[in-house]
Computed example of a mutant assay.
Amino acid sequence: MNNKTLSILSYVTIIGWIIAFVQSKDLTPKSDLVRYHLKQGFGIFLVSLLVNVALSIVVMVVPALYFLSYIGYVIFILWIFGIINAANEQKKPIPVIGKMFEDKFDFIN
């Protein structure tokens, strides 16, 4: 697989991320683009997981706050931005939350 494909795949579910991670280890030379999008993809996965768990608990305790579940659509839109950046082969962070992940996840290097 080429760098662009691996970059896009790093956003497509956690299974896609694992495939991209394993395939990126075989790349010679190592790709900064793939590494960058692996970090962004893993970060958005963690954020979506934490937000969904927190919202599930909040809505279970206070059912009147069900409208907060629309936050999931915001995360979906941010995910789309990540895929678009990967498809354009740009190293741009995901809006709002992407800067947090640029220097995290050292195991990806």
Rank of each mutant, 00 (worst) to 15 (best):
L6N: 03
L78Q: 09
W79T: 09
Y11N: 12
I14E: 00
Q23K: 15
K39G: 01
I19E: 05
V47C: 10
Y36R: 04
S24Q: 10
K4F: 02
I57N: 06
I97Q: 02
A87P: 02
N85S: 08
K104I: 02
F107E: 12
V58D: 13
I108G: 04
K91F: 01
Q23F: 10
A87R: 02
G43H: 01
G82S: 12
I77P: 09
G43W: 05
S24R: 06
V51T: 11
A87L: 12
G72H: 15
S56V: 03
K30E: 10
V62K: 09
S31H: 12
H37I: 15
L46M: 09
A87I: 13
S7H: 02
D106V: 05
N85T: 05
G98N: 03
T13Y: 01
G72W: 08
E89C: 07
S7P: 02
T5P: 00
I80D: 14
I84C: 09
A64D: 04
L33D: 02
D103F: 05
A87V: 11
S48T: 01
V62T: 09
D106L: 05
F45M: 14
V34P: 09
N2D: 13
L55M: 13
V47E: 10
M1F: 03
W79K: 03
L68P: 07
D103V: 04
Y73L: 15
R35T: 15
V12G: 03
I94L: 13
L38D: 10
